[in-house]
Simulated scan of single mutants.
Amino acid sequence: MYITLKDLMLDSNFRGGGISVVKYVRTSIDNCYITHFTTDGIFVQSGHETYIRNLFLDQHITTGGERNFCGTAINLVGNDNAVTDVVIFSANIGIMVSGQAS
């Protein structure tokens, strides 16, 4: 409860995802840059009130030539989440919302 992840640069090196939040309440992810993910840049499941803000997500650091996108930038499978001020440069899916009340 009340976990904050702030001011991080995460490079998944095409080996998985960036941040996974499972069964936590009131988590804040703020001012982060997540790149080279193959699954999910941010994955939220079975928790409540995750606040995602001021982020940059980029599966491929590119100038527009890359076309092999396979990941999801933000995957929300939970209740009462908020996403604000987020830039998604590249991903197969930008934001997937499959939970209620987000």
Rank of each mutant, 00 (worst) to 15 (best):
Y2V: 09
I3C: 14
K6S: 10
L8K: 14
L8V: 01
N13D: 15
N13S: 15
R15G: 10
G16P: 10
G17D: 13
G18I: 11
I19F: 08
S20I: 09
S20K: 06
V21A: 12
V22I: 15
V25G: 00
R26W: 05
D30C: 04
D30K: 08
I34A: 06
I34V: 13
T35I: 01
H36I: 01
F37P: 11
T39A: 04
T39Y: 03
D40N: 13
D40I: 00
D40S: 06
I42Y: 07
I42E: 02
F43L: 09
V44E: 04
V44S: 04
S46I: 05
G47E: 05
G47A: 03
H48N: 08
H48S: 09
E49P: 00
Y51G: 03
R53F: 10
R53D: 12
R53H: 13
N54K: 07
N54G: 06
H60W: 15
H60E: 14
I61H: 01
T63M: 11
G65I: 12
E66G: 05
R67G: 06
N68P: 01
C70G: 11
G71V: 12
T72D: 05
I74Q: 03
I74S: 05
N75I: 00
N75K: 11
L76D: 07
V77E: 10
G78Y: 00
G78T: 05
N79F: 07
D80R: 08
A82R: 11
V83H: 07
T84N: 15
D85Q: 15
V86C: 04
V86P: 02
V87W: 10
I88P: 00
F89M: 02
I93L: 09
I93R: 15
V97S: 07
G99P: 03
Q100M: 11
S102M: 05
